[in-house]
Design a protein around this nucleic acid. Structure first.
Length: 293
DNA sequence: CACTTGACCTGTCCGC
DNA sequence: TGCGGACAGGTCAAGT
């Protein structure tokens, strides 16, 4: 579910909700989400205040004033949902949110704040995780060290993208932009959307891409990521932001989950195939492949 | 080594 | 309705 735009939307929401709140207690019913010793939670989480929320790729980092951080990966179905004191004891989340009763079946961790507000880590498929470690050690996590550059960072231009893509010159372009060590944060939705925008077939081998195609892919990728952040991300099934609300990028999607519909550029019927082990949507006319042309 | 495939889980949807 | 199988937005480990 959550790719860069969804995680960034959650980050922005949490940043407006969590800082200065003090943690009173933490409950976790699923050890894999929270593998640290209870002792660490007691000493560095209970009583600590949230001071900042950061993002790297698809991971969120909640900085505490104890110099410890909670690092969260939502994987496919993770949610981080905040409930204010008023929502908790009043009417709950508004009807336009996807959130019903809390906690629910998918709730793995609850962070209770001193002011009676709460943060829920829900994760239906249990792929996600939450870890506690010293803030100074976050960048040393293997997961973080392997991540490629942020595609929306200031210095990241199309030449930088070209350099990164050429690390895997013989693979197909879709597999390469999904590779988090090449570029951080791109997932299946925005891979399909940006390849459609750049008129590149997902099976095209990186070495066969011309410089102008990579330049176009850079433009389209940064465009869809920025647009998706503006739209609050994509809600296909159960993604919600920190307030439990859906994102609206899917209303703007050109090919993702639109198989059987018309390509908005040429009218050809969009098809769904399988590339790099993932469901892949494309326009067979706009996105020609040498082998399928 | 580089690349591809299966496993991790639960829920839902589709066809019989 | 019920049931089996395929599939779902991400990442590893294991296999080729």
């Amino acid at each position: 579910m959550p790719e860069l735009p969804e995680v960034e939307t959650v980050r922005i929401g949490l940043l407006s909700l969590l800082p200065k709140r003090q943690i009173a207690s933490v409950s976790h019913d699923w050890a894999k989400s929270f593998p640290n010793a209870v002792h660490d939670v007691d000493n560095f989480v209970i009583g600590a205040q949230v001071i900042d929320i950061k993002r790297r790729g698809k991971a969120l980092i909640i900085n505490l004033d104890s110099d410890y951080s909670l690092v969260v990966h939502l994987k496919m179905t993770g949610q981080l949902v905040f409930r204010s004191q008023q929502q908790r004891f009043g009417a709950g989340h508004p009807n336009d949110s996807l959130i019903g009763k809390l906690p629910d079946k998918s709730t793995r961790v609850i962070i209770n704040f001193v002011d009676s507000s709460q943060l829920f880590f829900n994760d239906q498929r249990k792929f996600g995780w939450m870890r506690l470690l010293p803030t100074l050690e976050v960048d040393d996590l293997d997961f973080m060290k392997k991540l490629g550059p942020e595609p929306l960072a200031d210095g990241f231009d199309w030449k930088a993208l070209q350099t990164r893509l050429l690390r895997r010159p013989k693979s197909n372009i879709k597999a390469v932009i999904l590779d988090q060590t090449v570029v951080a944060g791109v997932g299946n939705i925005y891979a399909d959307e940006s390849l459609w925008g750049a008129k590149i077939h997902p099976l095209t081998i990186v070495n066969d891409l011309k410089p102008n195609q990579i330049h176009k892919l850079y433009d389209e990728l940064t465009f869809v990521l920025r647009l998706a952040i503006e739209k609050g991300g994509s809600t296909d099934r159960n993604y919600v932001n920190a307030e439990g609300k859906k994102g609206s990028y899917m209303d703007f999607a050109r090919v993702f989950r639109r198989e059987g519909q018309s390509c908005p550029r040429c009218g050809t019927v969009i098809v769904k195939t399988r590339v790099a082990g993932r469901g892949t949507h494309l326009c067979p006319k706009c996105q020609k492949h040498r082998l399928t042309a």
